[in-house]
């Protein structure tokens, strides 16, 4: 294949990565923005979503779409409930102190991961996609007879991958509407701006925190359910989404949702394209260094505005 179709294929794959990453990172960003809690266990909520999707898909007989649709509902709700329970039993008692909550979420990471290892086991297991029709894509080439349309071998995508992108866009719009247009979103934003003042206005801050922590984890789980027919469910799969979410949230500016989505698209696309030319390890080294250096030299994020 020539370089042109290659890049097009890489950016199509990158768009799927970007869509899933945007959802996961949005959850992390929401939790950090409203609660000022850095949730190291976020990747494990992602993993838990994928594993629960596998359980649900196994449990439901019939057409694979049925099991997948059930997983799409069950996994985020269950993971959200786990997160709310963790918030009520652990984070609330730490008074949301930033450093102590980080240590506690590291503990939570190992608890969730190792409990999954004990129950689900070390195997990687796939979930069948509800639908997956292959679409071949055309490419323009300048030949001896002028411009002509060719169908390069291997250039294509599946309907499922396009559906993932569509679903992610829809969910992100939903999150935006929730934050900007509803009463509960107003309460969240008020809590984010000034916790003390929100308390003074009788906003139930603790309940808002529990809700936000559950919502953030639910978003990660939803992203995992979407990706699990393409990847496989495995108890160690939480590491990469956590790292990439950190990259995205920090580059997009901590706690800013539009910045997060923009950065997710940028990182997702470039990750796809960079992995074509360089080794994935080198791409990860560059990404981690970028996060560290951005935090050191431009803590408001690449797209953020410095607070006055």
């Amino acid at each position: 294949m020539e370089i042109g179709p290659y890049i097009m294929l890489a950016s199509l794959e990158g768009a799927v990565t970007a869509a899933v990453l945007a959802l996961t990172a949005c959850g992390l960003s929401l939790v950090f923005g409203v609660m000022r809690v850095v949730n190291i266990a976020h990747g494990e909520f992602f993993m838990l979503g994928a594993v629960i999707a596998w359980w649900v898909a196994q449990g439901i007989a019939g057409h694979p779409a049925l099991g997948f649709a059930a997983a799409l509902v069950v996994a985020p709700v269950v993971v959200g409930a786990v997160a709310v329970a963790a918030d009520v039993t652990i984070l609330r008692h730490l008074d949301y102190d930033p450093e102590r909550t980080i240590v506690a979420t590291i503990g939570l990471l190992y608890i969730i991961q190792q409990l999954t290892l004990m129950t689900y086991g070390p195997e990687a297991r796939p979930v069948q996609a509800p639908f997956s029709t292959r679409i071949a894509l055309p490419w323009l080439e300048h030949g001896p007879e002028g411009w002509q349309v060719i169908w390069p071998w291997g250039l294509g995508t599946t309907t499922y991958k396009l559906a993932v992108i569509g679903a992610a866009v829809a969910v992100l719009l939903g999150v935006w509407a929730l934050m900007a247009r509803t009463r509960i979103g107003l309460l969240m934003r008020a809590t984010q701006m000034d916790r003390e003042m929100a308390l003074a206005f009788a906003i139930p801050v603790e309940r808002v925190y529990a809700l936000v922590f559950g919502l953030g984890a639910g978003l990660a789980a939803l992203a995992a359910v979407l990706i699990v027919p393409i990847q496989q469910a495995h108890y160690l799969m939480g590491g990469d989404p956590l790292l990439l979410s950190f990259v995205v949230v920090i580059i997009g500016g901590l706690g800013s949702l539009p910045g997060t989505v923009l950065a997710a698209v940028l990182i997702g696309l470039s990750d796809g394209i960079i992995s074509v030319f360089f080794s994935p390890t080198l791409a990860k080294i560059l990404a981690t260094l970028l996060v560290g250096l951005v935090l050191v030299f431009r803590p408001q994020g690449l797209f953020g505005v410095r607070a006055p």
Binding site: T281, T288, L293
Partner: peptide, 24 residues
């Protein structure tokens, strides 16, 4: 590098540089 930051940022910066070291 890292001591230009404090608190949570210091924790993430050290985590990221160590991760870069591991990957290297």
């Amino acid at each position: 590098l890292a001591l230009r930051t404090a608190g949570v940022a210091f924790m993430i910066v050290t985590l990221m540089f160590a991760q870069a070291g591991h990957l290297t």
